[in-house]
Amino acid sequence: MNVNYMFSLLAVVVLILLAYVGVEGAGLQVLFGVIIPYIAVFIFIAGFVYRVMDWVRSPVPFRIPSTCGQQKSLPWIKENKIDNPSTAGGVIVRMIFEILFFRSLFRNTSCRLNEGAKITYVWEKWLWLAALAFHYSFLTVLIRHLRFFLEPVPVCLQLLEKVDSFFQLGLPGLFLSGVVLLAAVIFLFLRRIYIPQVRYISLASDFFPLFLIISIAITGIFMRYFTKVDIVGIKEFAMGLVTLHPTIPDGLGGLFYVHLFLVSVLFVYFPFSKLMHMGGVFLSPTRNLPNNNRAERHINPWNPSVKLHTYQEYEDDFREKMIEAGLPVEKES
């Protein structure tokens, strides 16, 4: 038994019970349906701004040349313009690769002992693949949910839904993104359990969001395909929230409030956790600065102004004495 994931699992179970009992038992629809979601959105935005502004204030005076390619050098040495950019354009391309395709993660290798004591680094793409699947399906699911918050529903959303339910499996049509999301997040969880090294470095703060997202996905899938909810009622509810005229339609069911409460918890938790890599990835100093240390001089902006006394000035002061003592001087008189 690992304390880290047991605690996280327990925390999520408690949260689920809290919302379910709160709504089904105590009838706290207004608390879980209106007050908590509003607070959650507010804390999310305020916390996000707070964290980013904190990073803005953290100085990054120098370029950190953590690179994966040949630096710009002599004209006959070929520069790697993306992996070791010397211009803003190169940096933008590197950042696009990083943010949209997780290029750093793509370089992931796993280190094994092969043939006895021979160490080998093997390319390991599963983490990258699962991460990519997870992030993109989560984004798709998130955007799909906008259909509850927008009226009329924009055409691009309808198009997305059409693509997402491409296989027309069952009714209501199966959304692929939901399945991929759940599968990928479970893979990411199992990876932390089954790989000993990864389990060793995994903390409760790694497991908690995973359990939270797994629970959100499962409750969502249950509502859509199995237990069923009154979709028009939910849209009425969601529209009430975004038009600032909250209403609580009857018969939304405990499961819906559990789903909503877990999402609210995720929103509150987000800015103060590792999930802030969403904003942080844009500010990675090793990725978003051109490596031009050798071409340009970067002066530390908070250097105190030191009164300089250069060698030339020193020689001017002591030239005659130096000549007398037989010391070499740069200028004779």
Partner: peptide
Amino acid sequence: KCHDYASVRPY
């Protein structure tokens, strides 16, 4: 009415 509201386009 409801399908449009909930952005459901049954085939």
